[in-house]
Design a protein around this nucleic acid. Structure first.
Lengths: 222, 222
DNA sequence: ACAAAATACGAGCGTTTGCTCGCGTTGGTC
DNA sequence: GACCAACGCGAGCAAACGCTCGTATTTTGT
């Protein structure tokens, strides 16, 4: 009898099994990134992972559960990434440097994990992936708002919310353009995106905000 | 015998037939907008259009050709829209007014034709739709660049290209946020988007640009 | 050493999907 | 009014899909 299921905890997974699960998730990730979720057949995923269809269903009760597995891995990876990018340090950096660092890190991350990129920004994913991506973005929004709040405590909460939302949407719109461009053009596009965001965020949360717009370097009025 | 096919020109369509084709395209548009292209079954589309599967295939050789029909209609509608928005007049307007008008028109258009919206910006469409949308955006980019060129003839061609690309990507990123927000919040979000674009475009193609500026969005001397 | 559980296989099931086919109806043309 | 193309129907075919099942092998616990 099959003893399937993955997170029901009813199966004592062996080392071999955990390896297989990772193999299958890798294969599924690639397949879905290539042709979309509905079009990635379970048999094809199994074949790509070097596993029989029967074995696949030993670890995942159905196709949706494979997607759940991918989502779980992505959520964890994403959290790590944004923990690094939006740490306390981010509130103390120069705004331009901050923007540049995040955009750069985002670009290299998407380059290194193209499957994640296609999965969550592409147009061939699935409604479920869309929802997860929305939730993740909401979390990023909260953290970004916190960074802004620390940078500019005098700004109202509603404005902070607007700033964070617009910033995320902008990055979301601009990043595909950067990623689809030939690599030698990326630097110029990132610089342009930086200018765009700097012009928008600078007056609100940058050092040059308000009273006399000092050109100063290294001041912390508070 | 069936005499199918749509654009092969081998069939003398009657008035009744052309009406049926429009019915089918309407139904297909709605169905695809709801569940995505692959998941919208031909039988369901036929039923929604009040037509038998056999009749559907009288007008469209296969499922892809239905998509072609939708694309054709959208392309025409889109061209009309952008003809209005990016006419010669656009080069003579105040930059802020121009941005506001386009954003507003875009928002109302997407509200009135939700199917188009989901089809071309949603994540449940199809690779083919993606390609078409890319081509359309390229066309919009050309026209926008032309508007910018008329507004600021002294700006280099490469810079104009960057400005147009970044502008389109930004709008593409910001618009979903506006559309998904509750209607009473849209005005605030559009105002915010306007500020974002004005800050970026103003120094380059706005009336407030100055010849002597060496800072900010660095202009390459030549 | 031995039983039980976990892992592995792949042919093939039941269902769904895009599409066909045979046949009947409507409408334009002479 | 006779003829023929265009229009219309819907049962059902062939292919593809997600998934199962009987069975064989490997690992773990004792």
């Amino acid at each position: 009898m099959t003893a399937g299921g993955s997170d029901t905890g009813q199966v004592r997974r062996q080392e071999r099994g955990r390896r297989r699960m990772a193999q299958i998730l890798d294969a599924a990730e690639d397949a879905i990134a290539e042709v979309g979720f509905e079009e990635a057949t379970t048999n094809a995923i199994a074949a790509r992972a070097g596993v029989s269809p029967g074995s696949l269903y030993q670890f995942f009760r159905n196709k949706d559960e494979i997607l759940d597995g991918i989502v779980e891995r992505y959520t964890a990876t994403s959290r790590e990434f944004w923990d690094r990018q939006l740490s306390g340090e981010a509130a103390r950096m120069d705004l331009g440097d901050f923007i540049e660092r995040v955009l750069g890190a985002l670009a290299t991350f998407k380059t290194e994990r193209p499957a994640f990129w296609v999965l969550f920004h592409g147009s061939a994913a699935s409604p479920k992936l869309g929802e997860v991506a929305d939730r993740i973005r909401a979390g990023i929004g909260d953290r970004l708002r916190e960074v802004f709040r620390q940078r500019a405590p005098e700004v109202s909460e509603e404005r902070l919310e607007l700033l964070a939302s617009v910033t995320i949407s902008t990055v979301r719109g601009v990043l595909p353009m950067v990623m689809e461009a030939p690599p030698e053009r990326r630097a110029a596009l990132i610089a342009e995106a930086k200018a765009l965001l700097l012009g928008y965020l600078g007056p609100a949360v940058g050092p040059e905000r308000r009273e006399g717009r000092a050109e100063a370097t290294g001041e912390a009025p508070r």
